Simulated assay, not measured.
Amino acid sequence: ADQVALIRKQLDAADWSDGRATVGSQGARVKRNRQLPEQSAVGRELARIVMAALAAHPTFFAAALPARTMPPLFNRYEGGEQYGVHIDGAVRNVAGNMAGTAPGADYQLRTDVSSTLFLSEPEDYDGGELVVHDTYGAHEVKLPAGDLILYPSSSRHEVTAVTRGCRVSAFFWTQSMIRDDQRRGMLYELDQAIHALRLRHGDSDETVVLAGHYHNLLRLWAET
């Protein structure tokens, strides 16, 4: 909570720019929001805070199985702003002077997993739901400040219009060691099941076998 309050305080005093500057022509037709410029000093410092929190969060690692994670960017919606249905670009160019990267080490990142970190409380704004579309329909997400959602970057998604208040969030992409969504999901469920069994029954020959299968599947499928 303290970290979220610190981030919000700095973001509320920051200078924002048109969010369409960071998308192609197709995205620009449906994107109406504001972002911190990628080279913003405030954005780089806040990105370091978020990256450090991610590195210390075992659930994020288990769900994303990250090979590389792009330093977060920050956006803001208010006054009817929204981002229509779109799919994130498959590859992002990451500048070497962004937070969390080695100076000068520009690289390209395949976007396997998209993440949104909510920085506004749900009661502080109307609208602004993240809607992820998949085979089973549309899934609306509006989480408390400090909570994060991961979803496949191949998903069609949108942010609905904010009609009251202000929605602030961080967003970023991860190139996973497991590029296939189904395989990554299977490994996450297996990891969580093993963890639950160990908490309930302690270590046993069976949990060792299951953990072995997890790591052997990871070894079989991982790209590093």
Rank of each mutant, 00 (worst) to 15 (best):
V113E: 02
G202H: 01
T22M: 14
A62P: 07
P71E: 01
V23H: 09
A102H: 03
P122F: 04
F60T: 00
L36Q: 04
E78I: 09
A95Y: 05
Q39D: 13
T69P: 01
E45C: 03
H195I: 07
E123G: 01
Y188P: 11
P66W: 07
I194Q: 06
I178D: 01
L190T: 04
E121I: 08
F118A: 08
A21S: 15
P103D: 05
F171I: 00
D124M: 11
V168F: 08
V94N: 04
K142Y: 04
V50Q: 02
A41Q: 13
R219V: 10
L73N: 13
A56N: 07
A47M: 01
T101G: 02
P122L: 03
L73S: 09
A211Y: 10
T116A: 13
G27C: 09
Q39I: 10
N97C: 01
S114K: 03
Q26Y: 14
I194R: 01
N216S: 15
H201E: 11
A102P: 07
H215Q: 12
F118V: 07
D181N: 12
A64V: 00
S115V: 10
Q26M: 14
F172Y: 08
A67M: 13
Q39W: 12
R219Q: 14
G146F: 05
R44H: 08
A105W: 03
G100E: 00
T160K: 08
V85K: 15
